[in-house]
Design a protein around this nucleic acid. Structure first.
Length: 256
DNA sequence: ATGGTCGCGGTGCGA
């Protein structure tokens, strides 16, 4: 079972690229982030034609998350549903082949000390409570998406430059660690403790061709799935050429 | 070089 995550930065602008990648990569499950459209505008037919069901939690202009799968996702839950007054569409969950799948788009955080930065830290706490309320670490569960945190310096092209900046601050890393303390493992890092691969590059400054990136897109899994780990990677080529997203798809393969 | 580029929506904002 191959599970992937991709921040597409507008699913309508990225439709052809998404379809091409689905056809070549053949993931069983794909968690999408930053759809930037409402549910009715999602290119449902295009993904259906290449063999995928889709469940979507859309939003006009901003955010928006979805799950694509070769078999039909069931028990769909949209949002954190924790009673907080929050219009951001950043989370969707569904069950695929007995695995609970969560697609998450964590707030970017803008700049340290901003309102958005505080919202980001709180959002991490809300997601931890969501897991505590609804799930057990012994269940087969994956959380996939854009976490907007580089977990360690190895995940940053120039750690000295990024020291203390959003995506790399101690507070953000601690927030992510506290989330993972629920019982989640970073599947890529577990498989390859010393490998440096990035999933995001700034659109500016020729960051992509120079490979000046960060690893901020992750696939986290609970113990029953960690036992089944086979391989993981980043499809950097899906980012090349015309109409690239600033993120590349990341994926992890589990034994069936 | 404190800039630069995307996407949305039709201006400046979020990333």
């Amino acid at each position: 079972m191959k599970i992937a995550a991709w921040n597409v930065n507008s699913v309508r602008a990225r439709k052809d690229r998404l379809v091409d990648w689905l056809k070549s990569a053949q993931p069983d499950v794909v968690c999408l982030q930053e759809l930037k459209c409402q549910d009715a505008e999602f290119p449902m037919e295009a993904v259906r034609e290449v063999g995928y069901h889709a469940v979507v939690h859309g939003q006009k202009t901003y955010n928006g998350v979805g799950i694509l799968a070769k078999t039909e996702p069931t028990d769909v839950v949209r949002g954190l549903s924790d009673g907080v007054d929050d219009t951001h569409a950043r989370l969707i969950a569904a069950t695929v082949n007995g695995v609970r799948v969560v697609s998450a788009y964590v707030p970017n955080g803008q700049s340290v000390g901003s309102e958005q930065y505080e919202y980001k830290l709180q959002w991490y706490g809300r997601l931890r409570r969501y897991l505590d309320t609804r799930h057990k670490p012994g269940e087969p569960l994956v959380l996939c998406g854009d976490w907007n945190v580089a977990p360690a310096d190895i995940d940053v092209w120039d750690p000295a430059l990024w020291q203390g900046q959003t995506l790399c601050t101690d507070k953000e890393r601690k927030a992510l660690e506290h989330l993972c303390a629920f019982g989640l493992t970073d599947t890529f890092r577990k498989l390859y403790p010393a490998e440096q691969k990035f999933s995001w590059w700034d659109y500016r400054m020729l960051a992509f061709p120079k490979n000046q990136g960060l690893r901020i897109d992750h696939i986290f899994a609970t113990a029953p799935l960690v036992e089944r780990l086979v391989s993981a990677g980043v499809d950097r080529d899906a980012r090349k050429g015309k109409q690239p997203s600033d993120h590349a798809p990341v994926w992890t393969e589990f034994k069936d």
